[in-house]
Design a protein around this nucleic acid. Structure first.
Lengths: 193, 193
DNA sequence: GTCTATATAGTGATAGAC
DNA sequence: GTCTATCACTATATAGAC
């Protein structure tokens, strides 16, 4: 797992560019320019475009795993952990309004390209689903835990999509409040305090 | 508004291909091949790629306007009209699982490309929003009508996104039921029968 | 590790014959 | 209206000098 500084720079730049422009529309030249290296040098670090896509997906997956672990350690209450997840719609609002959800837009694009890496990208969405499922299970939702997880995940994805289309911050705030209220309702149904 | 048969064929093929592969990844060669004409002939009908994108967006917009009008004429009850809208997630399930929502994925892609036509594409989403707003207004939701419209629209977009990612028909069915139940609740709150 | 040059294939787009 | 031939450009990718 040796990562040279240049390699890491390339991954970071590609991550940003794939998010802002999409994978298909980002060329090696774009990435090389962002890192201020030549196209030729680029190929020393990554032989193919698929190779760098894979590296970007792995970085994103790893970043999200770290984030989820942080939330796991931050609170003992599953409901407030889920709330952390939902609130990324607010925290990352500016970028989401500009480019949508980094995970949702990538999975959508790779599915259309029918790219080999699409299953790997879907894995990030699955990570969210499984983590959320765990939280709802801890809340005592039992067999409904995964359905609840998908509900929150899908709802968030929809908010991200419309946020990008209509650039409406009030809408985002409203929906986030509604999701949080829904989580509270579920939480109080299973553990009436 | 003269539309030659070939021109119409091209628009239909481009519509399908833009949906299945995305706009950026669809070449003139792809479209020409689908219609069985030469690339050269293609340029007789459309001078630029933007021109055909515009034609496709206009077709999609027009198709949706027709669909909404059909629903308007089909029922007097705004709640069941909204139900028609939500149920397209079931009706078009196979394609949505394969390619996502034709409207949502196009707006997302054009936003990333920062393409001139992005506002035009957003207009289709706005058409849905405004039509839904009208239905909720007819339901007596007053000032909340547009918020309700965006709620249903965003929710549906999220379901489409996850449907494509996880290919889970049971999830789609479950969420559609939940949206319909939500609409019923809103409807009964304003007009308790 | 980084560069310049180059090979190869595909893209959007044009010209002109039929 | 449809075709073939062609142009200019950009893309991924490689070879080899430094």
């Amino acid at each position: 797992m040796k990562t040279s500084p240049t390699r890491q720079q390339i991954i970071n730049a590609a991550d940003e560019l794939f998010y802002a422009q999409g994978f298909g529309e980002t060329s090696f030249a774009d990435i090389a320019k962002a890192v201020s290296i030549s196209r030729g040098n680029f190929y020393y670090h990554f032989r193919t475009k698929d190779e760098i896509l894979n590296a970007v997906i792995e970085k994103r997956l790893s970043d999200r795993e770290t984030l989820l672990r942080t939330w796991d350690e931050m609170s003992e209450d599953p409901a407030s952990r889920v709330a952390c997840f939902v609130r990324i719609l607010i925290v990352n609002q500016t970028k989401i309004i500009a480019y949508g959800c980094p995970v949702g837009t990538l999975t959508t694009e790779l599915a259309k390209l029918d790219h080999d890496a699409k299953h790997k990208a879907n894995g990030i969405m699955a990570l969210f689903r499984d983590w959320l499922t765990g939280q709802f299970r801890d809340l005592g939702c039992g067999a409904e835990a995964e359905a609840h997880a998908l509900h929150v995940l899908g709802w968030s994805q929809g908010v991200a999509t419309l946020a990008q289309t209509f650039k409406d911050e009030a809408y985002v705030a409203r929906e986030v409040d509604q999701i949080l209220a829904w989580v509270d309702r579920v939480s109080q149904k299973t553990r009436p305090s």
